[in-house]
Simulated scan of single mutants.
Amino acid sequence: MHTAHSQATSTALPVVSISELNKSYFTRRGDVEALRSIEISIHPGEFVSFVGPSGCGKSTLLKIIAGLEDYQSGKVEVFGDPPKPGRRDVGIMLQSPVLLPWRTVLSNVVLPVEIMRGDLRAAKERAREIIDLVGLSKFTDKYGWELSGGMQQRVSLARLLLLDPDIMLLDEPFSALDEFNREKLTLELSSLHTRFQRTAVYVTHSIAEAVLLSDRVVVLKPHPGEVLEVVAIDLPRPRTAETLQSVEAFELVRRIRAMLFSHDEGIAQ
């Protein structure tokens, strides 16, 4: 049975639409085909993950949506327009938190507003609320260099939430963390998505992580990157650590893993 959320998004016009997308890199040794005939539509409020082994083009696809990579053919639209960098309705969070070590947690979170010359006083008030939401209220005045890796990623997530983009793009944001902190932040992200209902596009190698977070999982194979299947994740929200212990979640993880292993192109965790 589909959740109410997935039923609502399935009838809305897509905020991201990709059709017949092809992407190659040109090298001295010849062309390298990165993506082939990609077809994806992402609807308002959906959480969609791209999962697959290294070399399947997950991050490239995310960067194309962000307007940070070009492509050779096909059509990509974000809110009906070609993707372009720097737009305020699309925000991106990378593997590295990209904090300024000499600035405090609060001043790192509000930095984009400062750069855009927005209302800094209002931004700081809102930032304090979001810093509390991501569990860093006791560290508001700590400097970037004083924080652990997990804390730094929380600051990066808070900064993205403060900008409040309609689409959040997340490129393996927790991949460098230990298993404990990764699971904790993944659950926190799931909770925040339920609360804010923003469209999210998430890149990960972890099948279990994708299942826990997503409404749909786009399964990609490498060399070149192609869509094997788009799997609906019809698990009830809110989701917790116990969600992955359910028979339904276990079967979804098993199905996606078997799909990837059957192509013998690499191993996803």
Results as ranks from 00 to 15, higher is better:
T60R: 01
R216W: 03
V218L: 03
E46P: 08
R117F: 04
V16C: 04
G45Q: 05
I64D: 00
R87C: 04
L61E: 03
F196S: 07
T3S: 14
Q245T: 11
L133R: 11
K63G: 02
I256R: 01
L220M: 09
V201Q: 03
V218F: 01
D178V: 13
L162Y: 06
L136E: 04
I256C: 02
T199V: 15
P97E: 07
S54K: 00
D171P: 05
I130H: 07
P224D: 01
W145V: 09
K221T: 00
V76L: 03
L21M: 08
S54L: 00
L244C: 09
F180V: 15
D132W: 14
S24C: 06
F26H: 13
D234I: 10
A66T: 03
R254A: 13
R257Y: 05
L136W: 07
L62T: 00
V134S: 12
K23G: 03
K84C: 12
A34H: 00
G74Y: 03
G30H: 05
E114V: 02
H43L: 08
P14W: 05
L61C: 10
I18M: 03
W145M: 15
D178Y: 08
A158M: 07
G45M: 07
R29V: 07
A127E: 04
D141N: 13
D164A: 05
L161K: 12
V98W: 09
L62Q: 00
H5N: 15
V217Q: 00
L61P: 05
V109F: 05
L111Q: 02
G225Q: 01
I64K: 00
E129M: 13
A268C: 15
S107F: 12
V219N: 02
G45D: 08
Y143Q: 13
S246A: 15
R126L: 06
G52P: 02
P173M: 12
G80V: 11
D89F: 14
R237K: 15
P97R: 13
F180S: 15
L62W: 00
D119M: 01
D171C: 04
G86H: 08
R117A: 07
G45E: 11
V253Q: 10
I18P: 00
R128A: 08
F196R: 06
P238Q: 12
S246L: 06
Q197C: 11
